[in-house]
Amino acid sequence: MDKNIEILVVDDFSTMRRIVKNQLREIGFSNIREAEDGAAAMQVLKSAHIDFVVTDWNMPNVTGLDLLKQIRADERLKSIPVLMVTAEAKREQIIEAAQSGVNGYVVKPFTPQTLQEKIEKVFERLGG
């Protein structure tokens, strides 16, 4: 897995962004950008090169699910892998995310191991 990829972390809580960022650094990623909701994330995605998106679900304005749908609907962005990291743990939500094209789903609260495992799995599946 290339540790130099550009990662975008999307969460409305700065503390959660920081935790995810720290854990990504621990795994070895260092190019990490942040956005506080789906709308801000879309702006970053359109103005900078991003290889991987880690997003929360429940955010004001544009939610993580809407962000996922917007990414999948955009010709230029649609192949970017998206990992959902969220406290939303309803079955129908997981199914909806899967149907909308999510690449991985991590339920909060999570451990660094889980995050690493899921990220590796996402890239494994993309590589294979």
């Binding site: 309803k90 079955r91 339920v107």
Partner: peptide, 14 residues
């Protein structure tokens, strides 16, 4: 009934 109990159940569903 609707909620998964944690990561394991989410993985199972996925």
């Amino acid at each position: 009934k609707q909620r998964v109990s944690g990561q394991d159940e989410a993985d199972e569903l996925l």
